[in-house]
Simulated scan of single mutants.
Amino acid sequence: MPFGLFVGVNNHFQSVLYAGVLMRDETEDTFKWIFDEFVKMMAGKKPITILTDQARAMEKAIEEVYPESTHRWCKWHVLKKAKENLGAHYTKKSDFRAEFHKLVHEMLTIDEFEDGWAALLDKYSLKTNPYLVQIYETRQKWAKPYFAGKFCARQTSTGRSESANHMLKQYVPPSCSMNLFVKQYNKLQFDREQEEGFQEKCTRLSHAVLKVNTSLEVHASKIYTRKMFEIFGGIMYESGM
Rank of each mutant, 00 (worst) to 15 (best):
residue 2 P to V: 07
residue 3 F to C: 13
residue 6 F to M: 15
residue 7 V to S: 03
residue 7 V to G: 00
residue 9 V to E: 05
residue 9 V to L: 00
residue 10 N to T: 04
residue 12 H to G: 06
residue 13 F to T: 04
residue 19 A to M: 13
residue 21 V to P: 11
residue 23 M to I: 05
residue 26 E to T: 04
residue 28 E to T: 14
residue 28 E to Y: 08
residue 28 E to W: 06
residue 34 I to W: 14
residue 35 F to Y: 14
residue 36 D to M: 13
residue 37 E to L: 15
residue 39 V to P: 12
residue 40 K to I: 15
residue 41 M to A: 14
residue 41 M to K: 04
residue 41 M to S: 10
residue 43 A to Y: 06
residue 44 G to A: 03
residue 45 K to L: 06
residue 46 K to T: 09
residue 50 I to T: 03
residue 50 I to L: 04
residue 52 T to I: 00
residue 58 M to R: 03
residue 59 E to V: 05
residue 62 I to Y: 05
residue 63 E to M: 07
residue 65 V to D: 10
residue 65 V to L: 03
residue 66 Y to N: 08
residue 67 P to S: 00
residue 70 T to W: 04
residue 74 C to P: 15
residue 74 C to Y: 02
residue 76 W to Q: 07
residue 77 H to V: 01
residue 78 V to Q: 11
residue 79 L to A: 01
residue 79 L to N: 06
residue 81 K to P: 07
residue 85 N to Y: 00
residue 86 L to W: 07
residue 86 L to P: 11
residue 92 K to L: 11
residue 98 A to P: 13
residue 99 E to Y: 09
residue 101 H to L: 06
residue 102 K to L: 00
residue 102 K to P: 09
residue 106 E to L: 03
residue 107 M to K: 13
residue 109 T to P: 14
residue 111 D to Y: 13
residue 112 E to C: 08
residue 112 E to G: 09
residue 121 L to D: 03
residue 123 K to H: 13
residue 123 K to N: 10
residue 124 Y to H: 14
residue 128 T to C: 01
residue 131 Y to R: 05
residue 134 Q to A: 13
residue 136 Y to A: 11
residue 137 E to L: 13
residue 137 E to F: 14
residue 144 K to Q: 06
residue 145 P to C: 02
residue 147 F to I: 02
residue 147 F to N: 13
residue 148 A to F: 00
residue 148 A to S: 09
residue 150 K to Y: 00
residue 150 K to F: 00
residue 150 K to D: 06
residue 154 R to Q: 09
residue 156 T to G: 06
residue 156 T to P: 01
residue 158 T to K: 00
residue 165 N to A: 01
residue 165 N to T: 01
residue 167 M to S: 13
residue 169 K to R: 12
residue 169 K to A: 15
residue 171 Y to D: 14
residue 172 V to H: 05
residue 172 V to C: 15
residue 175 S to M: 14
residue 177 S to F: 03
residue 181 F to T: 10
residue 184 Q to I: 10
residue 186 N to R: 10
residue 188 L to T: 07
residue 189 Q to K: 07
residue 190 F to E: 01
residue 192 R to N: 10
residue 193 E to K: 09
residue 196 E to L: 10
residue 200 E to K: 12
residue 201 K to H: 03
residue 204 R to F: 03
residue 205 L to F: 02
residue 206 S to E: 15
residue 207 H to E: 14
residue 209 V to H: 10
residue 209 V to M: 08
residue 212 V to A: 12
residue 213 N to I: 02
residue 213 N to D: 08
residue 215 S to Q: 12
residue 215 S to A: 15
residue 216 L to Q: 08
residue 216 L to P: 05
residue 217 E to K: 07
residue 218 V to A: 11
residue 219 H to Q: 11
residue 225 T to A: 07
residue 227 K to G: 12
residue 230 E to L: 01
residue 232 F to C: 02
residue 233 G to D: 09
residue 233 G to M: 04
residue 234 G to H: 11
residue 235 I to F: 10
residue 236 M to W: 06
residue 236 M to R: 08
